[in-house]
Design a protein around this nucleic acid. Structure first.
Lengths: 341, 341
DNA sequence: CATGTCTCTGTGAGCGTTCACAGTAGAGAA
DNA sequence: TTCTCTACTGTGAACGCTCACAGAGACATG
């Protein structure tokens, strides 16, 4: 209360000390946990804080401690792509909550343009946050490299493709998710299982294809390259890939598609070709994105554990802020069965 | 470059000064615009900055200047509500861009829960941002009041209903938008124009109804309270209101609905009642939200100038940070004609 | 009694900047 | 010459806080 709305200069720790009849040191101790403070002193300080309306000046504190007690959540790509995605919202909320347990506020930073990236990088390296949770799908992200070089604790969401060794990341187990799906398709009686991969310069593209190959090998099925086509994670790319598949291997009876969005394209290609899903061809997607539910039939797909990913990202970041070395965490995925298989 | 990734202590202005063979003061001057610095000194400093990898410590700077050169964008409600809305994305991007012109980074802060609000309020009042752009639809938002009391420059998006006088805001002209729509309905030959209002404890609810009433008065149409029903901005609320309207005034030939979402409800009520849109009844919405395009038929609606709102919010905020008094800005709306009229 | 230990308190130093001020050198005017 | 003015430079003092340290009591232990 008091002095509300005034432009008057804010009360300092000094004012509180005077008001409480103690020294700066004692006030500071109360502020930082209250160890080694007598009950009487603590009460006096608490009262003085209330009566003066004191709020710590975090700049002064940060200047000396070197910490800012806040964490950034950095998006290095256009916001819309993410904001529309419910999975992203789960991730963001999960991180916020995980940090809340430590009373650390999370700052969302958007750096969609080159110019923004420059500004935000400067802001971060100047020490405004203790660490950064990075979300970006482009793997060779220069921002990550720059922050890493500046010594900023950093945890990426998803496996970065470049200098993987030096930057922490938390990711779902793409390879194992792919294995689960292909195994599932096989178990439901499919024998000519094709796949539409993601771009092979993304971790998801590579690992999901690897999982596919592994399971076929396990099952003793002779690899058939006609059953493999590449997409670009887009709907149209999926459709085109499916058309190529149908031409090269018209006897396919299942397709494992590396993203739900591409799976939508595959569905429409199959529909045009007069194949029924799932009767003639089973479709397995990946991501459990909104596209999975919006499709008809609804897609069987692989869900990534976004809530756990969020928790792990925060855990790893805080560990790194605490001085530990970068580390990687891989989390298991879950197969969601719907109508397309 | 140099010392990449090291935990080594960062170079200070002192190190740069030594390296460049000048004093702290000169380095500081170069950093802050370079006035009163000889070309030779400036070059030496620039070189030293590069060779040492120096980055200003913003905590130290902020401590003395009292400014943080950053601005917060505060959401005091659950993120999802906004993230899904393209209008919100336009607003956010607009603010980011407007601030970019001043090289000010924008920090998005989410405070959906009570706990988060506490944390973020503390963070803000501690001086971490120079001002706050506030987005919240609940009008009696305690956060706004608290920040205002703490003397934090603040600009709300949309007219706050409570202590309006003391807090700046930028809003679209609800009343005038409503007038335009009702006038438009009248000009297209409708004579029994009903309305579904928003809640009357929101500015939108009040002002849009006021606009409706004004135009009818202008046109010399006798007010008929049977043509007015209240909704709650939800789809279901709109549907219920439309049912009441149809019962009370079955001869209506147009409805001005205070939000697109409610208009969707109205559409479905009319559909159930066997009325054709726009043949039998014309529908005018408000907001130009995604609902307007997702409806069938697509809604004629009132668009708010989100890009201009963003620019004005930033302008007003910066003015306030610069010491000016709070002010209000009202911007004109635009009528978007589609198939529902 | 001396000594040690534990809890509590105050004090000085310093974090990395900016700011105000004092001062220097050179150019031009009186 | 001498003075003023301008362009530039260096220096000490903050800013508000935390940290390390020293010291004061209280109490127990040898």
């Amino acid at each position: 209360m008091s002095n509300a709305g005034a432009r008057r200069k804010a009360p300092t720790i000094h004012d509180v000390a005077r008001e409480a009849g103690v020294s700066r040191g004692t006030v500071s101790r109360v502020l930082n946990g209250g160890h080694y403070v007598s009950p009487a002193a603590r009460e006096a300080v608490d009262a003085a804080i209330k009566s003066t309306g004191y709020v710590v000046n975090r700049h002064a504190r940060s200047l000396i401690t070197g910490r800012s007690d806040s964490v950034g959540f950095l998006l290095t790509e256009p916001q819309e792509r993410f904001f529309e995605d419910p999975n992203f919202n789960v991730l963001l909320r999960g991180c916020t909550q995980a940090l809340a347990a430590y009373d650390i506020p999370l700052l969302l930073m958007l750096a969609g343009t080159q110019d923004e990236r420059r500004r935000i990088t400067r802001y971060i390296t100047a020490g405004h946050v203790d660490g950064v949770l990075l979300v970006s799908s482009h793997s060779g992200d220069p921002v990550a490299e720059e922050l890493r070089a500046a010594g900023v604790p950093l945890v990426a969401c998803g496996k970065p493709i470049g200098q993987a060794s030096k930057v922490s990341y938390v990711a779902a187990d793409d390879r194992d998710g792919a294995r689960d799906m292909v195994r599932f398709l096989h178990q439901s009686g499919r024998r000519r299982i094709a796949t539409v991969t993601g771009p092979l310069d993304t971790p998801g593209g590579v690992d999901r294809l690897a999982g596919y190959r592994e399971v076929l090998a396990e099952l003793g099925i002779t690899p058939d390259e006609r059953l493999i086509e590449h997409g670009d994670y887009s709907r149209a790319g999926g459709e085109a890939a499916a058309e190529r598949l149908l031409a090269a291997a018209p006897d396919l009876d299942a397709v494992f598609v590396a993203s739900d969005l591409m799976a939508q394209g595959v569905l429409s290609a199959l529909h045009k070709a007069g194949r029924r899903v799932p009767e003639d061809v089973a479709i397995g997607g990946f991501d459990d994105s909104p596209a999975a539910l919006a499709s008809s039939p609804e897609l069987t797909t692989i869900r990534q554990p976004w809530d756990r990913i969020a928790n792990e990202m925060v855990r790893v970041l805080l560990a790194q802020i605490g001085g530990e070395d970068p580390s990687a965490v891989i989390l298991p995925t879950e197969l969601i069965e719907r109508r397309s298989t």
